[in-house]
Simulated assay, not measured.
Amino acid sequence: MKKISLMLAVAAVSLTSACTWVKVSDQGSSVAVANAANVRSCEKVRTVNVKVKDNFVGSMKRSPEKVATELTNMARNEASQFGGDTVVPASLVQDGRQSFDVYKCN
């Protein structure tokens, strides 16, 4: 019985590890991702703090690249709600959390 449970858990992780759960919305797709040098002439609108799950069950960690992609997607979606058209990472990813500054450049 334990062997079947373990096999099901491994299968579930394998299937879901390829997925990105947070998609960019239609509005978020018009928001660019830049660095601080690219937004010198832009107006800062606000800072958003985003969070996603960075692990599956217990201590099984998700791919850092997928977590970072989802955080960026979420920041782009939120920026569009506040009139921003560009996001810049304001912190590093830590425990599935990251801050982004939102700018209005156009």
Score class of each variant (00 low, 15 high):
Met1Cys: 03
Met1Glu: 10
Met1Val: 06
Met1Gly: 11
Lys2Phe: 07
Lys2Cys: 03
Lys3Gln: 12
Ile4Leu: 13
Ile4Phe: 13
Leu6Thr: 11
Leu6Gln: 11
Leu6His: 04
Leu8His: 01
Leu8Tyr: 06
Ala9Trp: 06
Ala11Pro: 03
Ala11Gly: 11
Ser14Ile: 12
Ser14His: 02
Ser14Asp: 04
Leu15Ile: 12
Thr16Lys: 08
Thr16Ala: 10
Thr16Leu: 14
Thr16Asn: 11
Thr16Arg: 06
Ala18Trp: 13
Ala18Asn: 10
Ala18Tyr: 14
Thr20His: 12
Trp21Gly: 11
Val22Cys: 09
Lys23Val: 05
Lys23Phe: 00
Ser25Glu: 09
Asp26Glu: 15
Gln27Val: 12
Gly28Ala: 10
Ser29Met: 15
Ser29Asn: 15
Ser29Cys: 09
Ser30Tyr: 04
Ser30Met: 12
Ala32Gly: 03
Val33Ala: 10
Asn35Asp: 15
Asn35Trp: 02
Ala36Ile: 10
Ala36Ser: 14
Ala36Cys: 01
Ala37Arg: 05
Asn38Ala: 15
Asn38Gly: 10
Val39Lys: 06
Val39Leu: 06
Arg40Tyr: 00
Arg40Asn: 14
Ser41Asn: 14
Ser41Ile: 02
Ser41Asp: 15
Cys42Ala: 09
Glu43Met: 10
Val45Tyr: 02
Val45Gly: 07
Arg46Lys: 13
Thr47Val: 11
Val50Asn: 03
Lys51Cys: 07
Lys51Gly: 09
Val52Asn: 02
Val52Thr: 08
Val52Met: 03
Lys53Asn: 14
Asp54Leu: 12
Asp54Ala: 14
Asn55Trp: 07
Asn55Gly: 13
Phe56Ala: 08
Phe56Lys: 05
Val57Cys: 03
Val57Ser: 08
Val57Ala: 11
Val57Asn: 06
Gly58Glu: 03
Arg62Cys: 08
Ser63Asp: 15
Ser63His: 07
Pro64Lys: 09
Pro64Tyr: 04
Glu65Cys: 03
Glu65Ile: 13
Lys66Asn: 12
Lys66Met: 07
Ala68Asn: 13
Ala68Leu: 10
Ala68Phe: 08
Leu71Thr: 08
Leu71Pro: 15
Asn73Leu: 08
Asn73Trp: 01
Met74Tyr: 00
Ala75Ser: 09
Arg76Met: 13
Arg76Leu: 07
Asn77Asp: 14
Asn77Gln: 08
Glu78Phe: 00
Ala79Asp: 12
Ser80Val: 06
Gln81Asn: 13
Phe82Lys: 11
Phe82Ile: 00
Gly83Lys: 09
Gly83Ser: 07
Gly83Ile: 04
Gly84Ser: 05
Asp85His: 01
Asp85Gln: 04
Thr86Val: 15
Thr86Arg: 04
Val87Asp: 06
Val88Asn: 05
Pro89Arg: 02
Pro89Ile: 01
Pro89Val: 01
Ala90Lys: 11
Leu92Ala: 11
Val93Gly: 00
Asp95Leu: 12
Asp95Trp: 04
Gly96Tyr: 01
Arg97Ser: 10
Arg97Asp: 01
Arg97Lys: 15
Gln98Asn: 02
Gln98Lys: 11
Gln98Thr: 03
Gln98Glu: 06
Ser99Thr: 07
Phe100Cys: 04
Phe100Ser: 04
Asp101Phe: 00
Asp101Leu: 00
Val102Asn: 05
Tyr103Arg: 02
Cys105Pro: 08
Cys105Leu: 02
Cys105Gly: 04
Cys105Lys: 02
Asn106Leu: 01
